[in-house]
Design a protein around this nucleic acid. Structure first.
Length: 422
DNA sequence: TCTGGGGTCCTCTCCCTA
DNA sequence: TCTGTAGGGAGAGGACCC
């Protein structure tokens, strides 16, 4: 018996038997991905409500369909989810495991076609035009993928098959869970027009409100509205974009590797913080984490930005562009700390801080001007050595002293006079 | 009713330069 | 030399996606 049979899958649902000619774009989306991965190691929870999430101020990362029946959905505050479904088993996320399963799934995709564009851990676009002669029609390839994911990874996925990315993505959403939906080229408009405006890629809460205010409720309404009217309502880019999508026009191709444009990290405090020393220490930790990830990816960046969210949820960002790209945590921290100090916050209650580095380029091809008197083996080499130690002995084995002692004092900042507390 | 974390993209504004 | 203007880059904030 195959794993797909063991999973007790209901079989292909409801898609119109349709003509899949030219429908070479597949969107594959794992069903309740994090929750499904947790069920692999806890099969006794199959068929019960399970919520993946955690922290006293966290949100739901994923929930089984049994939990969703109670109104639980991802991004919902955990406190609310617990109230809606008190009988649910709450599981803390295990991100390493999700990455493992995701890598296995992407490997399956790449054995079908090299044209795989991952969107996140749990979904990807595939262009299977080049695989049709070898593996059969797009619908057959979709079935093959669903079976292999179930057999080899023990989870289910849904597949949308269409002529464009946008329609394929909508199709996979409409056939969840564990389904496949083919939208033939001739049926695109009939498929799209009855859908609500929020189905369109790029329409969130605010834009939906604005469109409904104009009396536009369905995708068909958008399609039959002059583009100039849409542009006036929601802006040039969004207006043109929505009008094109509403007629099924989407020129984007499947791009296997898009380089990262920014890398960052942010953290919500367990409770609001008004001590600048605590905030600075958190900034340092985030800079360390960001820089380590940049070095792992071989990237360096020029623009450092910080984000501060206050207790009332208002959020501000500040950014500064450096003369040269860097992947050194201490340089990123010096800039981030400068930006934070320049805010001049006086015991403001802070909920979250974040650090992000933009303007990324390959660190191997990014020239570094050695300053007069600067030692050739400096902070960068120290941090690279720390990377090697962490890779060998695990996270937390090496790091700045200020992060491993109870002293909240900030570390030495090259742009400032010596800090008496540090 | 309480809102994570990691991202991308767009719009607006300001400043500098030609 | 002064003024107006257009364009580009940077910065800030917002909306959106998963």
């Amino acid at each position: 018996m195959s794993r797909s049979q063991q999973l007790d899958r209901p079989g292909p649902p409801a898609g119109p038997p349709g003509d899949d000619s030219g429908c070479t774009i597949l969107h594959v989306d794992m069903d309740a991905f994090y929750a499904s991965v947790e069920l692999i190691s806890r099969p006794e929870l199959h068929g019960t409500p399970v919520i993946v999430g955690g922290g006293n101020r966290g949100v739901v990362l994923s929930a089984t369909y049994e939990a969703r029946r109670f109104g639980v959905h991802s991004a919902m505050p955990m406190s609310r989810a617990r109230r809606l479904c008190p009988q649910a088993t709450v599981v803390a996320p295990t991100h390493g495991r999700y990455s493992q399963v995701s890598a296995g799934v992407m490997e399956i995709f790449r054995s079908i076609t090299p044209l795989v564009e991952p969107l996140s851990l749990d979904e990807a676009f595939l262009d299977v035009a080049g695989a049709v002669r070898r593996l059969g029609r797009p619908a057959e390839i979709g079935t093959l993928i669903r079976d292999r994911v179930a057999d080899e990874q023990g989870i289910t996925c849904s597949v949308g098959v269409a002529t464009t990315k946008f329609v394929a993505k909508l199709a996979s959403t409409r056939c969840k869970p564990d389904g496949m939906l083919i939208v033939p080229a001739a049926g695109v408009v009939a498929f799209l027009h009855p859908l609500p405006v929020a189905a369109l890629w790029g329409v969130g809460e605010k834009t939906e409100k604005e469109l409904v205010r104009l009396g536009l409720h369905s995708v068909g309404d958008i399609a039959n509205t002059p583009r100039s009217t849409l542009v006036r309502a929601v802006g040039q880019a969004t207006g043109s974009h929505l009008h094109a999508l509403a007629w099924g026009r989407d020129e984007r191709s499947v791009v296997p590797h898009e380089p990262d444009k920014s890398i960052g990290a942010e953290e919500t405090f367990a409770s609001d913080v008004d001590d600048p020393q605590v905030v600075r220490r958190e900034l340092l930790r985030l800079c360390e984490r960001t820089a380590a990830r940049m070095r792992t990816h071989g990237l360096a960046g020029r623009t450092v930005s910080i984000k501060v969210r206050f207790a009332d949820f208002t959020t501000i960002t500040r950014a500064r562009t450096l003369k040269e790209a860097t992947d050194v945590a201490q340089e990123i921290y010096a800039t981030a700390r400068g930006l934070y100090d320049a805010l001049g916050l006086d015991r403001a209650r802070i909920r979250l801080v974040g650090v992000r580095v933009e303007g990324l380029a390959d660190s191997g091809t990014t020239p570094r001007q050695l300053l007069l008197g600067e030692r050739s083996r400096g902070r960068r080499e120290v941090e690279q050595a720390a990377d090697r130690a962490v890779a060998r002995f695990g996270r937390g084995t090496v790091g700045p002293a200020s992060l491993v002692t109870s002293d909240p004092a900030a570390p030495p900042d090259p742009s400032r006079p010596p800090d008496p507390s540090g």
